[in-house]
């Protein structure tokens, strides 16, 4: 196990080396003064500021060492619930595709993001909204009131008749390719142990 983590660490170090750090700290965003003349706008667009191909430079250069091993690929395929490659050629193609994708997306390693809070999703991040979305006993009061206690063990049940009707007012099995009675059916030969 330890060896595997060592290997992982080496891998990451190698990944970092893959890129010549062309910019580690980005320049600050700015707004320039208003263009005074028609010529000023021409000057604004005169020189392209960068090349999208720079993201691909490492992707096009032949990889010296592969980042993903065959074993790793198989592990990823299992995680993805996708079939394993049928033959060597397909396996090689898969590795090649994945590595070119990885080299492209790993351009993000070039940026210094120390102390930056990840943006998980776009949501109201004001203090007011954060407070509003906090779940407290008060927020749940209404729901607690609907709880029913049944049986000797005091099993707690929660049901909302109105909601239940709406939620159960459709045939959950209607979309399944194969059903038997109230069940979804799967074709499967049971192999002998």
């Amino acid at each position: 196990m330890a060896a595997r983590w060592m290997e992982r660490g080496m891998l990451m170090a190698r990944q970092r080396l893959h890129f010549t750090p062309s910019f580690t700290r980005l320049v600050r965003p700015y707004v320039g003064p208003a263009a005074k003349h028609v010529k000023d706008i021409e000057l604004m667009l005169a020189e392209p500021s960068w090349s999208v191909n720079s993201l691909f430079t490492s992707h096009h250069s032949p990889a010296t060492e592969s980042q993903v091993s065959k074993k790793q690929l198989h592990h990823l395929l299992r995680l993805s619930a996708l079939p394993l490659p049928a033959n060597e050629a397909e396996e090689a193609k898969m590795l090649k595709d994945l590595e070119s994708q990885l080299r492209f997306v790993q351009a993000i390693q070039r940026v210094d993001t120390d102390g930056v809070e990840p943006l998980v999703s776009l949501r109201d991040e004001t203090e007011e909204a954060t407070k509003e979305s906090e779940v407290t006993v008060d927020t749940l009061k209404e729901d607690f009131a609907k709880e029913t206690v049944t049986g000797i063990r005091g099993r707690i049940g929660r049901s909302d008749p109105a909601k239940k009707e709406e939620e159960e007012d459709w045939d959950a099995l209607a979309c399944a390719p194969k059903t038997v009675g109230r069940y979804i059916a799967l074709d499967n030969k049971v192999s002998a142990p």
Binding site: V27, R28, P29, M44, V52
Partner: peptide, 18 residues
Amino acid sequence: SIHSVSLPTTQIALSAYY
């Protein structure tokens, strides 16, 4: 009024997006 602006992270936004 037309202003030149700079949004430096644009250059790696594409990689982050994918």
